[in-house]
Structures are given as C-alpha cells and as structure tokens.
C-alpha cells in the first residue's frame, strides 16, 4: 500500500524534474526570442515540482493512514482484472492493424468478457462478443464512414 501512496508523489516529483530538464534541452527558436518556447513549460514544471514536493511531505506525514480503496485495489481479483485489461489492451494495439478490426476486436472483447464475466457464462460472452463486434464494425465503417483496418 505504501508503494502506491508514496509512489504517486515520487512519480510526480520525478516527472516534473524530467520535464524541467527537458526544457533546458529544447531547441532554440530561430524566430523572435530564441527562448520563447521555453518559458511556459519551464514555469509549469516548476509549479508541478513545488506542489508535488508539498504533496510528498503531506503524504509522508500520513504514511500510516489506511486507504481503503488502495486495499481494495490490491485485494481479491481486482489486480488480476486491472492487469488483464491493460495486457489485453496492449495486445489489441499490437494486432489491430495487422489482423484487421473484426478479428482483433472479437479476440479482445471475447477474452475480456471471459475474464471479467467469468467462464461459466460463456454463452452470454460469445453472443455479446459476436454481436457487438459486428454491430460496431457495421456502425463505424458503414454508417459513419470511418476507415477501419
């Protein structure tokens, strides 16, 4: 739990430092004031850094307080569901353009339903997968004219 509670402020501090360093390495503008593109991101990353440090100290003081939602996130099958959704999403992104919309969507939605809704309800899962894949394919590509792979 502490990892998540402390992880966020630490992540934000690191992120603001990365962006702050990034602003020093931005290319200079060849038009007008060469530093003009720097000021805004630099100011905002300093702001983010300051607030994140305050946040970090606030959290350090409260490090031992319990956060029910973090506990829920880490308990039961929640971590599995979150992990599976993200992993399947990555897989979907990788195959979407190569195997085409319909096939990849059937795989993605089907797998997700089997994990979230459970194997026992396989009939519902398959029906929902097939109908929604086809309906969305038809609606987007035929009716809305979106070019899907």
């Amino acid at each position: 739990m502490k990892i998540i509670k402390m992880g966020m402020p630490v992540f934000l501090v690191v992120l603001s430092i990365v962006f702050l360093l990034g602003t020093y390495n931005l290319p200079k503008a060849k038009l007008g004031n060469p530093d003009a593109p720097l000021y805004f991101p630099m100011g905002v990353s300093v702001l983010l850094l300051v607030f994140s440090v305050i946040y970090l100290f606030q959290e350090l003081r409260r490090a031992h307080e319990d956060n029910e939602q973090i506990r829920e996130m880490l308990s039961g099958r929640t971590p599995l569901l979150i992990g599976a959704t993200i992993a399947l999403g990555i897989g979907y992104a990788l195959i979407f353009e190569t195997v085409g919309f319909l096939f990849s969507t059937i795989l993605f939605l089907g797998a997700l339903l089997f994990i979230v809704n459970g194997r026992r309800k396989w009939i519902t899962n398959i029906i929902v997968t097939i109908t929604f894949s086809f309906v969305s394919w038809y609606a987007f590509s035929e009716l809305l004219g979106v070019s899907l792979p």
Binding site: F108, L112, L113, V116, G118, V128, F140
Partner: peptide
C-alpha cells in the same frame, strides 16, 4: 461485468 468490457472496447474504437 458485461457492460465494462463493452465500454472499454468502445473507448478503443
């Protein structure tokens, strides 16, 4: 449990 996967799919599309 059925609705959420569908929302995720719609989000991708």
């Amino acid at each position: 449990k059925v609705l959420y996967p569908i929302i995720v799919m719609l989000a991708f599309i």
